[in-house]
Design a protein around this nucleic acid. Sequence first.
DNA 1: CTTGAAGCTATAGTTGCTAGAGACATTAGG
DNA 2: CCTAATGTCTCTAGCAACTATAGCTTCAAG
Lengths: 137, 137
Amino acid sequence: MYSIGQIARRTGIKVPTIRYYEQMGLIDPPGRSAGNQRRYDEAGLERLGFIRHARALGLSIDMIRDLISLAQDKEMPCDRAHEIAAQHAAHIRQKIARLQRLEAELTRIENSHDSGTVGDCHVLAALTDHSLCMSEH
Amino acid sequence: MYSIGQIARRTGIKVPTIRYYEQMGLIDPPGRSAGNQRRYDEAGLERLGFIRHARALGLSIDMIRDLISLAQDKEMPCDRAHEIAAQHAAHIRQKIARLQRLEAELTRIENSHDSGTVGDCHVLAALTDHSLCMSEH
DNA sequence: CTTGAAGCTATAGTTGCTAGAGACATTAGG
DNA sequence: CCTAATGTCTCTAGCAACTATAGCTTCAAG
């Protein structure tokens, strides 16, 4: 049996975050000590590891909840799990594409040299006038 | 003189968002009509255009506030503006790198085929066991 | 048995908006 | 000039995913 602090150290998830996940229904409320403190078992530890990894990959709380309820029955088809992963990967690819456009624009703005005073600062000019941009964003 | 709705249409920023920017100190409180409605002039319009563009490039409200106060005096050096842009570009590059690692990992997980049931679903297995990962995240 | 760390609950703050309620202002048409 | 429709006002609350604080209780070591 682990206390919430021990679980926190072992999973790398902060104590308040673990309580938050419990509140959000990602983990079953664990048993309690005589003095009302949470006591976790191996299953709880594994569940939190799953959540941590899924969060690290950028999955939302809702997606994780779906995956967990899905994983309950080992006999069920897991198409939905693949679908969630694919959807999320696509989402990330979009994000990357958008950030790359922003990065290109910022780099261009950043590298344009000016006289060094606000009056003709290229950074400020570029921000004021969208038509100076090379790409959409 | 423009009403807030006209400004919204011309800048593409929604009405409540404009009021929010005012509250956040990004725009000076405009004059009011006899009936207490906001009335904007060209300067207000231009300021909102600046904000919109900066937000589209991902700059935070705080950064934008800094840039605006900086732009007040045309004689001042604008090193700080370049610095903010450079900082933000670096931040975006980091984000991109991280997302690319995630994307690679997700694609790998997504493409690994399994028997199609939850019991041996590679997506769920990969999420449960971090050691199956090929890269850090 | 004492003490200091760790845990408890409940509430509020973070960022950048967005949505709603209920009241008042403006404007176009008749 | 009156009315109806639309626009605007303030204030409050909600979103995601935590994080921080306050004031209290429990646990474990010495």
